[in-house]
Computed example of a mutant assay.
Amino acid sequence: MDDLPSEVRAALETAISGNGIALTRSGSPIGSLEFRPIALEGTVIDGPLQPSPPTQIPDGVTVIATTMSLSEAARQRLSDELGTEYIVLDITKAPTSSDVLLTHPVSPQLLGMLQHKFPSARVVITEIEDEELGVRFPGPVSRLLDAGASAYLPPRPIAELARNVHLYLTQREQPTLEQAPRPRHGLSRAEERQIGS
């Protein structure tokens, strides 16, 4: 890295920090680069781990376990927004009988391990971007949108896809690739584009 030109080093540092690099040729997008670390990140803890005391869960409450490293404030906000019928717990404090597992996009292997640990949980994969709470867990869709894609259409049959593409293209004056504005009201770029499409 030290021997690279400063512009190339700056672009790679951007990728290392979690943002993809958009590649263009003659002004046309041709792809993107993403950084995948070869070293595990974390903290080594000496000595045996002390199990957390079990959380008391009232009857009839839906338990949501989150795999993301959320602050207590972010987890509490999520719980408050869901209402009193839900309790949101960190995965390390959630019972294996949790009802829902809320995770950012992960590998199929990790997803299988999570499903093994929480066999009865419905798995909900999400991307999160909340500037107010300092939370950002982008996934492949957000990275592609940040790299310059104009919209994301979820998987649909061909006839429905054609309708959605037509609707998206006719709602805009000129369909062009452009950088997305910052999200509004806690919506991710992907959600804003889905709503706009």
Rank of each mutant, 00 (worst) to 15 (best):
E160Q: 15
T96P: 02
A94Q: 04
R143T: 12
V141G: 10
A74M: 01
V61N: 02
Y86L: 01
T103Q: 07
E85R: 10
L89V: 00
L153N: 07
L153Y: 09
S107P: 05
T55M: 04
E85L: 01
A162R: 07
A94I: 05
A73K: 07
P140E: 15
A65Y: 01
I64N: 06
K93A: 13
V165Q: 09
S142M: 14
T103I: 04
P58R: 14
L133H: 05
V88Y: 02
T126E: 08
T126H: 03
L70W: 01
I64E: 03
V123M: 04
V141H: 14
P155T: 09
P138V: 04
S97A: 12
H116V: 06
V88H: 04
M113S: 14
P58M: 10
T66N: 08
D130I: 07
D59L: 07
T126K: 06
Y152G: 10
R77Q: 12
A121M: 02
S107F: 04
P95K: 06
E160F: 08
L78Q: 04
I125E: 15
P108Y: 10
T66R: 08
A147T: 13
Q109C: 07
R122P: 00
R75F: 03
T96W: 05
L89S: 04
P108A: 14
I158W: 10
N164P: 00
M113A: 15
S69H: 11
R136C: 10
V106T: 11
N164G: 10
A149T: 12
K117S: 14
H116Y: 12
E81C: 11
S52Q: 14
V123Y: 01
L144S: 14
G60R: 09
V88K: 00
P58Q: 11
V100T: 02
T96C: 08
P119V: 11
D80W: 01
H104F: 11
P54A: 13
L114P: 03
I87W: 03
D80K: 08
R75P: 01
T66W: 00
G83F: 06
G60W: 01
Y152I: 11
A74Y: 02
P119M: 11
P140A: 15
E85G: 03
P157V: 13
F118S: 02
I125C: 10
F137N: 06
K93Q: 13
D90I: 04
P140F: 11
E131N: 12
V141Y: 09
A65P: 01
Y152A: 12
T103Y: 03
S97Q: 08
S69L: 08
V61M: 04
S150V: 08
L78Y: 03
I158A: 14
T55I: 05
V88R: 04
G112W: 07
A159I: 08
I91E: 11
L102H: 06
P53Y: 09
S71D: 02
